[in-house]
Nucleic acid binder design. Structure first.
Length: 841
RNA sequence: GCCGGGGUGGUGAAACGGUAGACACAGGGGACUUAAAAUCCCUUGGGAGUAACCUCCCGUGCGGGUUCGAAUCCCGCCCCCGGCACCA
């Protein structure tokens, strides 16, 4: 008699997700075709930091970042923009190489495997990626242009090979850029970094320091990121002051002084022999400078060292040279130093002062030499106390005078004392006055110093793009002609690095032996490869132009799509990738290849996902493995949960049980919409409709600001209202939920969209719902009634009620009158539609 | 030391200077079930009072301040996270 019950139409994420991923691929839903790239209507370049394809696969942190950026891209797409959302692989570099070594595999075999696995996972999480425009930095088609980039900088005078003290990681057996040294440790492997003097290729980023700093103010970037770059660039105003040898320049026989190298400005500045240049932010205190300190590596050390002191000086220098950066830069150790025997003349006092060397002065900052002012610098004070050097006072603060004893360095403000004609000037006035006075004597000038150094880009490793330079005995360093690019990285089975300071490629004679492009004579290829951060410093320029093979980026396409509209990524790259990308863009702009100089109009740093309040790590055993979760709940639920955890820009604490909330919500949404025939066609309930419009308004406002967690909460709240007390949903009440959930849960949204009878992808048009501001307003409002700031009652009043009406209603509340009894009403504060505060005594 | 960002229930978190704890998780109670799972409903900051509808007191790291009113603004501390750090 009864028909078999039809199989209940339940939410099965794995089925619908696979179905829609196939559909997207088949229909090319996420691809921006070449003609569209050339002529977009409303282009929106939605960029996220491309991953490094590890063997472990995508981790939750990756998925969090990609999901958050994907939500952003999908939202803009639903608003009718042409969204270009590419992804690729940053697959060169030491990390991959080390892993290959560990596994006994070759990176050329390993990387494609990892890339394939990552691709599978990236598709599975439902990213709106344009797979037709992807990059893999290890392919010759890509690194050909990385090499091209090197040549442009070389031709532009921004790439230079020079010998300088560089950071050497004894474990990775390669040099590192300053940005890759974190607190004296290798960013990659955490080993203590040593200093070596090897000839390296440098990019002249320090020339751009002022612009890189100034432009920051014009960028719509996360504050934290801007601050990190600001700190890193490290502008400080001060003066260069010159202290001449007390014995006269060059008087000491055999002194092989090379002059002064300025660390911060590229080292091109020379100086008179025997004159020490110092950088100081306190030129006002020069009358209190009672000795000089040179860094142990300073080129003038030999010049000043007397025969009597030579043994001691040499011993100190060789100890310093052997100390790694961690030990060297430790701030809590007792200061050490050695007197060279030489003296300089203080240009202010005319008196000779001794020249010391000490490792608390760093060759890499300023000029590598300081004037020591013990009275007004904490470090110099400590040094003077230790070695019994005089500590005169030249600044007197409030309540101090020229003779107030110094028990510690006075670094505050005040007036000059013991400074001949400048006594009585305020510190700030004295800085300028004294520097001008010294400048008149040729002893100094005001200047600005930056701590940003040139970018060391050569690596003595195998897994990177060979630097396209050839060394010819006759012609010297010769760039490889652009039409001979790429210089292909050969497959070398023995790619293990060693301590020699040269790349494994230097063992492959058949590769490095070549002929000079200029004279045709015997020549040798550069065997160093370039830094991975060079690969990633320009990848966003390549994405839209991957269809172009005769240029790194097509001018027309680039003009249409760049700079990048939205870039979302981790703040760990604030001073690495993001700074390098800005520099490369600025350099390409100056060299005439780009018409903009900042690559990323808007950048947002996402937060960090932690587990149990701690960073996820293998050693803590709190790593969340994504695949089983996606298996069980589907990508949509996983994405939704990650975005629901907390504010996207602050991260969140992942708890396994928490996924039940978003999962239940999606099931409820499914159950509400899917019996499509049962949905009532009646007009929406007026109260529900008002809530709907308010929800649309809120989500429309919050989504572009990455307010994901509160948007999701609003959607949940709305669905709760639709279903309140088990009520039946009407079609007009739920239809708009589908596009609103779509950025978070694209597969589910497509399925519901189709089941509601729509044709084509929900993302193929401007399907974001609109709202009527008039409908966002409730007729009645809840007004809190306070007596002396404490809530005693709440009133339901018509919107826009007058103060008198509100007061009358409040007086009718027993709980209000109770508190007003026997008191005098002194003041009434009325905030319409919000609150009534009765102040009584 | 300097520069950012934080500190709110058992937990993740909400809150234009205007009813602190939205939305969830976990917990408690109930419905359905032979039972469980799933689902649904109610409840849940702490304390006190009341037969009950309810009402009161306390409460946003600590101490002050501004204000009719402060998680929010100001001053001084403490703690956590991130960046820089012998930077002259």
């Amino acid at each position: 008699m009864n028909h078999p019950e039809p199989a209940p139409d339940l939410y099965h994420p794995s089925e619908i997700e696979a179905k829609w991923q196939e559909t997207w691929d088949r229909e090319g839903t996420n691809v921006v075709p070449t003609d569209r790239l050339r002529a977009p209507d409303r282009p929106f370049y939605n960029l996220m930091m491309f991953p490094y394809p590890s063997a472990e696969g995508l981790h939750v942190g990756n998925i969090y970042a990609f999901a958050g950026a994907d939500v952003h891209g999908r939202f803009h797409r639903l608003q009718g923009k042409d969204v270009f959302e590419p992804i690729g692989f940053d697959a060169f570099g030491i990390h991959s190489e080390n892993f290959a070594l560990k596994m006994g595999l070759h990176p050329m075999d390993l990387i494609p495997r990892n890339v394939a696995n990552f691709t599978r996972q990236l598709r599975r999480i439902g990213g709106m990626f344009d797979w037709k425009h992807t990059v893999d930095t290890t392919t010759p088609e890509y690194y050909r242009w990385t090499q091209w980039l090197f040549l442009q900088l070389y031709k532009g005078g921004l790439a230079e090979r020079k010998e300088a003290p560089v950071n050497w990681c004894p474990s990775c057996m390669t040099v590192l850029a300053n940005e890759q040294v974190q607190g004296g440790h290798c960013e990659r492997c955490d080993s203590a970094v040593e200093q070596r003097r090897i000839a390296q290729w440098f990019f002249g980023i320090s020339k751009f320091a002022p612009r890189l700093l100034e432009n920051l103010a014009t960028l719509d970037w996360s504050d934290t990121t801007r601050k990190a770059q600001e700190n890193w660039i490290g502008r400080s105003e001060g003066a260069i002051l010159r202290f001449a040898d007390a014995n006269g320049a060059g008087s000491r026989a055999g002194a092989a002084a090379e002059g002064v190298t300025r660390g911060g400005s590229g080292g091109e500045a020379g100086a008179e022999i025997g004159v020490v240049e110092v950088f100081t932010t306190r030129p006002d205190t020069i009358f209190g400078a009672t000795w000089m300190v040179l860094a142990p590596e300073h080129p003038l050390v030999d010049h000043f060292t007397t025969d009597e002191q030579r043994a001691e000086v040499d011993a100190y220098r060789s100890t310093a040279a052997k100390t790694d950066l961690v030990a060297r830069k430790k701030t809590d150790k007792t200061k050490t130093g050695v007197f060279t025997g030489g003296h300089c003349v203080n240009p202010a006092t005319g008196r000779p002062i001794p020249v010391w060397i000490s490792d608390y002065v760093l060759m890499e900052y300023g000029t590598g030499a300081i004037m020591a002012v013990p009275g007004h610098d904490e470090r110099d004070f400590e040094f003077a106390t230790l070695f019994g050097l005089p500590i005169p006072r030249v600044v007197a603060g409030e309540g101090q005078d020229a003779d107030t004893p110094l028990t510690e360095a006075w670094t505050g403000s005040g007036r000059m004392v013991n400074s001949a004609p400048f006594d009585g000037l305020e510190v700030d006035e004295a800085k300028r006055a004294i520097t001008e006075w010294l400048a008149g004597k040729g002893a100094g000038e005001l200047t600005v110093n930056y701590r940003l150094h040139d970018w060391c880009i050569s690596r003595q490793r195998y897994w990177g793009p060979p630097i396209p330079i050839v060394y010819c005995d006759g012609c010297g360093a010769v760039p490889v002609p652009e039409d001979q690019l790429p210089v292909v990285l050969p497959r070398v089975e023995d790619f293990k690095p060693d301590d020699s300071g040269v790349s494994p490629l230097a063992r492959v004679a058949e590769w490095y032996e070549t002929t000079c492009p200029d004279c045709g004579g015997d020549a040798r290829r550069e065997t160093d490869v370039s830094d991975t951060f060079l690969d990633s410093a320009w990848y966003f320029l390549r994405y839209p132009s991957t269809d172009v093979d005769d240029a790194p980026f097509d001018p027309g396409i680039t003009k249409a799509w760049l700079p990048v509209d939205s870039y979302i990524g981790g703040n760990e790259h604030a001073v690495l990738h993001l700074l390098y990308s800005r520099f490369i863009t600025m350099a390409l702009h100056d060299l005439g290849h780009l018409d903009f100089e900042e690559p990323f109009t808007r950048f947002r740093a996402h937060g960090l996902i932690v587990k149990d309040g701690a960073k996820m790590s293998k050693s803590k055993g709190n790593v969340v493995v994504p695949d089983p979760i996606i298996e069980e709940y589907g990508a949509d639920t996983f994405r939704l949960y990650l975005m629901f955890l907390g504010p996207f820009e602050e991260g969140g604490d992942y708890r396994d049980a928490g996924i039940a909330g978003p999962w239940g919500f999606l099931k409820r949404l499914w159950d509400t919409v899917v019996p499509v025939e049962e949905l009532s066609g009646e007009a929406p309930d007026p109260a529900v409709e008002r809530k709907l419009h308010r929800t649309i308004a809120q989500v429309t406002r919050q989504l572009p600001e990455l307010g994901y967690n509160t948007s999701i909460a609003a959607l949940m709240e709305y669905l709760n209202a639709v279903r309140a007390g088990g009520r039946q949903a009407r079609r007009g009440e739920v239809e708009a939920l589908v596009p609103m959930i779509a950025p978070f849960c694209p597969h589910l949204a497509e399925e519901l969209w189709a089941r509601l009878g729509n044709r084509g992808s929900i993302f193929s048009g401007a399907n974001w719902p609109g709202f009527d501001p008039a409908l966002c307003i409730e007729d009645t409002v809840t007004v809190a009634v306070q007596v002396n700031g404490k809530v005693r009652a709440t009133l339901e009043l018509p919107r826009g009620s007058s103060e008198d009406d509100a007061l009358a209603a409040a007086r009718a509340e027993e709980n209000v009158t109770r508190f007003l009894e026997g008191a005098e009403l002194r003041r009434i504060i009325y905030v319409q539609d919000r609150l009534l505060n009765l102040v009584a005594t």
